[in-house]
């Protein structure tokens, strides 16, 4: 067998087999939970979701994630992706308008709508919203939970994740964690 075939097979096994197995093995040992996908469980041990992956919320008492184009109804973690709508596509304008109208229904005092509230994320699974987006949802959530807007605003502000190392990226709020903490702090009356 000539060298060009031998080296191809050898690198196939080394780079395709040994290398990923080493990273997975070390990752599992050192960071087991993260290696498994940062899954969040309830107290009975049932999986609720992943801290890194957006899931659908439509009830008034919860903060809602960004619109999602992943899968038929959005938030499909087996089918990630964006809308791929161009800025000049009328369909984009119509969608954003509908989302903005819904946001203004929730909060009539809302002035300009935060952009991340009405646009599809790139992955369809963006777990975060901007602080402005969360604050725009405060009136709706406070009403549904019987809290004052002031109380809830304070609660939201505590959940703001700053820029990484104080510099990189944008301040943000993880929607699933915020909603989980909200349920723990102020459970809904059944």
């Amino acid at each position: 067998m000539p060298a060009w075939i031998r080296i191809s097979i050898l690198l196939f096994l080394l780079c395709g087999g040994v290398y990923p197995a080493l990273v997975v093995g070390a990752g599992q040992l050192l960071f087991h939970d993260k290696a498994q996908g940062s899954i969040i469980y309830d107290k009975d041990g049932n999986a609720i979701g992943s801290a890194l992956i957006a899931q659908a919320f439509d009830k008034d008492q919860y903060f809602h994630p960004r619109p999602s184009a992943a899968g038929a109804d959005g938030y499909d973690a087996t089918s990630s992706g964006g809308s791929n709508l161009a800025p000049t596509n009328q369909k984009l304008i119509d969608q954003v308008k509908a989302n903005a109208d819904a946001a203004k229904q929730d909060d009539p005092a809302l002035g300009e709508v935060p952009a991340d509230m009405v646009t599809n994320s790139g992955s369809g699974l963006d777990p975060d919203i901007s602080p402005e987006n969360a604050l725009a949802q405060v009136p709706r959530v406070a009403k549904a939970r019987g809290m004052t807007e002031q109380q809830l605003t304070g609660f939201v502000n505590q959940h703001v994740i700053g820029r990484d190392l104080g510099i990189f990226g944008e301040p943000r709020i993880n929607v699933l964690r915020l909603n989980l903490d909200l349920d723990a702090a102020k459970p809904m009356q059944k």
Binding site: T119, G122, D128, E132, R172
Partner: peptide, 11 residues
Amino acid sequence: AQGNMEGKEVR
């Protein structure tokens, strides 16, 4: 204020 956010991630 956030710029063009369609297709982008908040973080």
